[in-house]
Simulated scan of single mutants.
Amino acid sequence: MSNNRGGSREGSGRKLKYNEPTKTVRVPVSKIIEIKNYLNEAEKQSFNDVASITLVDPTTLMHIPLASEKVAAGFPSPAQDYVDKTLDMNEHLIKNEAATFVVKVASLSMRDAGIEIDDELIVDRSIEAKHEDIVIALIDDEFTVKRLMIEGDHNHWLKAENPEYSDIHLKDGQEMVIWGVVTFVIKPFRKR
């Protein structure tokens, strides 16, 4: 007799309630109400997806060799050893030095857009945000990293790129300030 109940299904399972993994622990009965009250406060919506914000100081100049031909994902051509010019990473990543910041990410709310915890984002505050840009927004004095969705003249909301996180639709009295537009994600492919 076969059992058709097993296996995982997309979207099933417990959802992250506190934006981090949880663990089962034993607590004294006399502390249950106190702990539940604490957890209810922690459960209130928090937007702070940003660990740090640092102003860019492009004082160093480093020229990196730039191959003159594009590289395919297959086997490289032996002729591609020729380096035509060099690239300064400051010129490549920073368009407006005075308005550019590096933001370190503190949540997985944008995981499916390739942004993970401890990734560094290059953020330009001088760019006007457009529909579907990834932005740093300020809501209730907390920063969040989300995709800006614009529907009509007055309906703006923020989309999470991870089904375990909620989209952000402003409630009455809430104000959203688009602090900057994410232009690049800096992340290592090789862990040290």
Results as ranks from 00 to 15, higher is better:
Ser2Gly: 10
Arg14Tyr: 09
Leu16Cys: 13
Glu20Tyr: 10
Pro21Cys: 11
Thr22Ser: 14
Thr24His: 14
Arg26Phe: 14
Pro28Trp: 10
Ser30Phe: 07
Ser30Met: 08
Ile33Phe: 13
Ile35Val: 11
Ile35Asp: 06
Asn37Met: 15
Glu43Lys: 15
Glu43Asp: 12
Lys44Glu: 12
Gln45Trp: 06
Gln45Cys: 06
Ser46Ala: 11
Asn48Glu: 15
Asp49Thr: 09
Asp49Gln: 01
Ser52Met: 07
Val56His: 04
Pro58Leu: 04
Leu61Tyr: 09
Glu69Lys: 14
Lys70Ser: 03
Ala72Gly: 14
Ala72Gln: 15
Phe75Ala: 01
Pro78His: 03
Asp81Arg: 06
Asp81Val: 09
Lys85Thr: 14
Asn90Ser: 04
Asn90Gly: 05
Leu93Trp: 10
Ile94Ala: 12
Ile94Lys: 07
Lys95Gln: 15
Lys95Asn: 10
Lys95Leu: 07
Asn96Tyr: 15
Ala99Ser: 15
Phe101Asn: 04
Val102Lys: 01
Lys104Thr: 15
Val105Arg: 00
Val105Lys: 00
Ser107Pro: 02
Ser109Met: 05
Arg111Thr: 11
Gly114Tyr: 03
Gly114Phe: 02
Gly114Lys: 05
Glu116Thr: 13
Ile117Cys: 08
Ile117Gly: 00
Ile117Pro: 00
Glu120Gln: 11
Ser126Pro: 11
Ser126Leu: 11
Ile127Gln: 01
Glu128Asp: 05
Glu128Thr: 12
Ala129Cys: 06
Lys130Cys: 13
His131Leu: 12
Glu132Pro: 06
Val135Phe: 12
Ile136Met: 02
Asp141Gln: 10
Asp141His: 08
Val145His: 07
Arg147Gln: 00
Arg147Leu: 00
Trp157Ile: 10
Trp157Met: 02
Trp157Asp: 06
Glu161Asp: 03
Pro163His: 04
Ser166Leu: 07
Leu170Trp: 02
Gly173Cys: 00
Glu175Arg: 05
Ile178Tyr: 03
Trp179Met: 01
Gly180Ile: 00
Val182Met: 12
Thr183Arg: 08
Ile186Arg: 04
Ile186Ser: 05
Pro188Gln: 11
Arg190Cys: 03
Arg190Lys: 12
Arg190Thr: 08
Arg190His: 11
Lys191Ser: 06
